[in-house]
């Protein structure tokens, strides 16, 4: 039996919140459970599993693409900057949640040397252009492909975000529902050279 199945069965077997009054001392236990659940959420309990092939502490694979503004996008050209490389897609709801923060960070930390780069894993560039305008993205976005996905260890679930230091080495990767606070703290740390 896998973990998901176990969790489902456990959920079915557990008494509902309405059952607390039926037993003495049950309410404090129920309250404690709520508090523990809250603590788990606060600690980022919904973070997804990492990619099968971790690239952390490895040199960021180089690539050159043409961005949506028809400009050359060469990762190597950003050496000396901290790069946040974001794989996303228009159909990916968690991606869309993150992007306003990325826009704000580009504006806030750009002068300190941050460069955000978006790689869309959409099939249709027209949808990407539309969202690019709607969200007023202030960083370059290029269309991804299988080759680029392979370079980054297989982008088989979105969003996927990499933090690359000023020397071109990947220092962190985040997959799935990300803790934006954690990403920002690591970003600040890389910008300040700690």
């Amino acid at each position: 039996m896998n973990a998901v199945t176990s969790q489902r069965i456990a959920r079915k077997a557990a008494p509902g919140p309405e059952a607390w009054y039926a037993q003495p001392f049950a309410l404090p236990r129920f309250a404690l459970t709520l508090l523990l659940a809250a603590a788990c959420l606060a600690a980022g309990g919904t973070r997804s599993a990492h990619a099968a092939t971790s690239l952390v502490h490895k040199r960021a694979p180089e690539f050159v693409r043409t961005d949506l503004d028809h400009k050359r996008l060469d990762l190597n050209a950003y050496r000396g900057k901290v790069v946040l490389l974001d794989f996303w897609a228009t159909w990916c709801a968690p991606c869309e949640v993150e992007m306003p923060s990325f826009v704000a960070w580009q504006k806030k930390y750009g002068p300190q040397g941050l460069q955000i780069i978006g790689i869309s894993m959409d099939d249709d560039p027209a949808l990407v252009r539309s969202l690019y305008s709607k969200l007023k993205l202030n960083y370059p976005v290029a269309m991804g492909d299988v080759k680029l996905g392979d370079l980054y260890g297989g982008v088989l679930g979105l969003p996927m975000t990499f933090l690359i230091d000023r020397h071109g080495e990947i220092q962190a990767e985040f997959q799935g529902e990300a803790d934006l606070g954690k990403i920002e703290r690591q970003l600040q740390s890389l910008l300040s050279g700690r």
Partner: peptide, 25 residues
């Protein structure tokens, strides 16, 4: 006491949810 416990737990949950808008929607 039970009412206080429920109230505190609710407040904590509300606080946590306020810290992570949209991420868990």
């Amino acid at each position: 006491r039970p009412s206080v416990a429920v109230g505190l737990a609710t407040l904590v949950l509300l606080f946590v949810c306020a810290q992570c808008p949209a991420q868990f929607t």
